[in-house]
Design a protein around this nucleic acid. Structure first.
Lengths: 215, 215
DNA sequence: TAATCATTCCAGCATTCACTAGAATGATAA
DNA sequence: TTATCATTCTAGTGAATGCTGGAATGATTA
């Protein structure tokens, strides 16, 4: 009967390999970035604000847990999530964290300059309004990420170009901005800028990965 | 703009607290046990084959991540999952692990004595057959766990009592046994015993937590 | 060929982790 | 009071982890 113990230990140990990947803040950040589409090591390093070497070693962990795939493209190596369920798991983990951890809730409140900027994400009605053109859904991520996937009816204006392209947006309707997800600051910045310029703007906390989760 | 980095780091750090809980094999085992219902520290220690003190310290981690709740009941302290989504997360993590990790797939094959014993879990048709009484769904977990929650139409005969209570089961119909989940060995043992005794028996890999996930 | 992108190996450092053991503490029930 | 259940503190061990730096290696492109 000692055998049973050994087998069980082996099984849980394997599952823990997946848990370990999700136990490091930097790896979580890399996962969220990869949720936006495939990226090179350099890009990931820059966007996560860490060295290429450290990025490489975190990506190694992800590879060893079979959560990412790689593809060489010329001089670069592209990383992408191995599976949609990896993105789903990321969303489920951070959602549970937001549900349980008061510290996280408090930290999140610091992002939205004004809580009133946040839009209560009633998907049905938001999409209905977007379809009718009553609101403009604005994707402020880099355009490659928009091209990889975006919310229905969304228009792309990367945050960096927003100030120059304000004329593309209407002042008589609401603008709902979103970015990579609740931990990305781009949408909040966009909303602040838009409101400064006299637009009616709201902040949608969810990104593409969160939106894709079937509820 | 350094502020943005600090806030981001803080956010991912909080989410990583949840990931850390899922990064230890023993804690995963405790979570699975708690998926079966509330239990005392002693029970958990016994069923996970670890010391009470070590169990206590793992439970402390779970408490600090707000994933469990406690309640004093006389001399004992009962632990239970704080939320259904904790059980859901456990299921999703081990499902992803089974999907991605070949080593885990191989280890799982050792459990079912014969792969043919495994029942392809087409829920619809299994439940239809169970409703009609064409098959007997058998819960071989301890009876407290059955009382806490069980599959529809399931009958309870704890593995320990199975040998003495064989006469309660029909020989002209199939018996489908299940236990705590894919990492629990009780259902496999039950099926082996039943087949030895001339019953037609199958092994359902899923437990209550897996069954409860909406697909 | 040289330059770029990425990984790997080495070493080192500080920190954390899982686990064990002994002893003390607290809360409860009989 | 005594016994039981559970946690906590201290202390220790061995292992792993996150990160940094330097140097070498490979694959690719120009």
């Amino acid at each position: 009967m000692k055998d049973a113990r050994k087998i069980k230990d082996l099984l849980y140990e394997q599952v823990a390999r997946i848990g370990k990947v999700f136990s490091s803040p930097k790896r979580l950040e890399l996962i969220e970035l990869l949720c936006q589409g495939e990226k090179t090591v350099e890009t990931l390093a820059r966007e996560a604000s860490i060295s290429v070497k450290l990025t490489s070693s975190h990506l190694r962990e992800l590879r060893m847990a079979q959560l990412v795939e790689t593809e060489r493209q010329g001089k670069n190596i592209l990383y992408r999530l191995a599976n949609k369920s990896v993105a789903d798991l990321w969303v489920q983990v951070h959602t549970l964290a937001e549900d349980r951890l008061v510290e996280l809730q408090l930290a999140l409140q610091k992002i939205a300059t004004q809580p009133a900027d946040l839009i209560a994400s009633d998907r049905e009605s938001l999409m209905k309004a977007a379809r009718k053109g009553e609101v403009v859904v604005l994707d402020v991520r880099p355009s490659e990420e928009y091209l990889n996937a975006h919310l229905p009816f969304a228009r792309s204006i990367p945050l960096e170009e927003l100030r120059q392209r304000l004329s593309e947006l209407p002042k008589d309707r609401s603008v709902v901005a979103y970015c990579r997800g609740p931990y990305c600051l781009m949408a909040a910045d966009a909303v602040a800028l838009l409101k400064d310029e006299g637009f009616t703007a709201f902040h949608l906390r969810e990104g593409v990965a969160e939106w894709a989760i079937s509820k």
